[in-house]
């Protein structure tokens, strides 16, 4: 199996404050990986470093490419659409994506939009939090790339929307693509994850298979994750 993402010796400082240091991470193709960590631990920063929106020191390779401009062709990130004015209609955002990303698959988008019940005639300002997140997920997954990054897609969202989003992730993540999904509450997605990556103390503290954790520790993923903060469980 090939690797989709390789991060070597990555560190990131902002305003002379160290946010991430000595990050090494390799993700194989075809996995759904949970990115866990407390708020402010650097989960979003790690994703921004992968896309090239933030610039750190170290090597980041996505599908064999290293420059930010090339990496962007292989990564689809759930960006929050701040570049569009509130009065923009969803259909306009979709056609922007279609123009700008050669890998954007309109058919996939339409299937996702139908499944998530998205109405393209609405304006961005008319969307509820859940609907907006669904729209962002549909846009993100409609691109055909090797690596998907979903940044906290469930924060502040009702459970029905959450279920719909999880289903669409299972259904529409391409077979050989890897999806990294960040969340600070893992139970809701635990059954979907192949692996978990925990960001703690400015670096990657844990990277393990989910069933491996259940097998070896007999713990729920959530309990295992919490135990990391109590210093209880040692990892190897």
């Amino acid at each position: 199996m090939t690797d989709v993402l390789t991060i070597e010796n990555l560190s990131y400082k902002r305003n002379q404050k160290l946010i991430l240091a000595n990050v090494d991470l390799t993700l194989a193709a075809g996995k759904i990986v949970g990115l866990l960590g407390e708020n402010g631990a650097g989960k979003t920063t790690l994703m921004r470093l992968i896309t090239g929106s933030a610039q750190g020191n170290g090597t980041i390779t996505v599908s064999g490419t290293t420059t930010p401009a090339q990496r962007k062709s292989h990564v689809s990130f759930s960006e929050q659409l701040h570049g569009f004015s509130k009065s923009t209609k969803l259909a306009r955002v979709v056609s922007f994506y279609q123009l700008v990303y050669p890998d954007f698959d309109l058919k996939r988008y339409q299937d996702l939009a139908a499944f998530l019940q998205i109405n393209d005639d609405l304006k961005l300002s008319a969307l509820s939090k859940g609907m907006r997140e669904k729209f962002i997920i549909a846009l993100t997954l409609a691109r055909q790339v090797e690596l998907y990054l979903l940044d906290e897609p469930f924060s502040g969202i009702d459970s029905m929307s959450r279920k719909k989003i999880i289903s669409s992730i299972i259904q529409w993540t391409p077979e050989n693509a890897t999806l990294l999904i960040s969340d600070h509450y893992v139970t809701e997605i635990a059954s979907v994850l192949d692996e978990i990556v925990v960001v703690k103390d400015q670096t990657i503290a844990v990277h393990r298979g989910a069933d491996e954790i259940r097998n070896q520790t007999g713990l729920e993923i959530e309990d295992y994750y919490e135990s990391l903060y109590e210093g209880g469980v040692q990892h190897d």
């Binding site: 075809g30 289903s167 299972i170 259904q171 979907v192 192949d194």
Partner: peptide
């Protein structure tokens, strides 16, 4: 496989295994 994954809300790889 993918249908099973959606029905059971699990990952395709887990079904595969």
């Amino acid at each position: 496989v993918r249908q099973l994954a959606v029905d059971l809300t699990v990952n395709v790889n887990t079904i595969q295994r």
